[in-house]
Amino acid sequence: MIIESMMDTLLAGGVILLACLSLSARQVFTSIVLYVCLGLLATLIWVRLNAWDVAIAEAAIGAGLTGALLLAAWRQLCFEPSDQTRESNGVS
């Protein structure tokens, strides 16, 4: 019982900490990676809250696909076109 409530506290604290870090990171890339970590931690919280369906969807969509979308858009936005033609595959 005490271990469970400790785990809940750690997860809740970790999510809040990651949100702060993600929004205050100096580089956009760091923000995106920290947001993906936040999504994975949120998945664990959904499991703790007995929401298995939501946990599966969050792991696949919230953490995986949103991260991929953000990284793809970041690469297009933050580099000049000359860079883009040179490294035309892989999300650096």
């Binding site: 298995w52 369906d53 946990a55 599966i56 969807a57 696949a60 969509i61 995986g64 696909l65 991929a68």
Partner: peptide, 17 residues
Amino acid sequence: SPGGAFQAAAVIAGAGV
């Protein structure tokens, strides 16, 4: 049991990504 259309679609889309 847990699972369904959205989860399946997300996993398949992940494979495509």
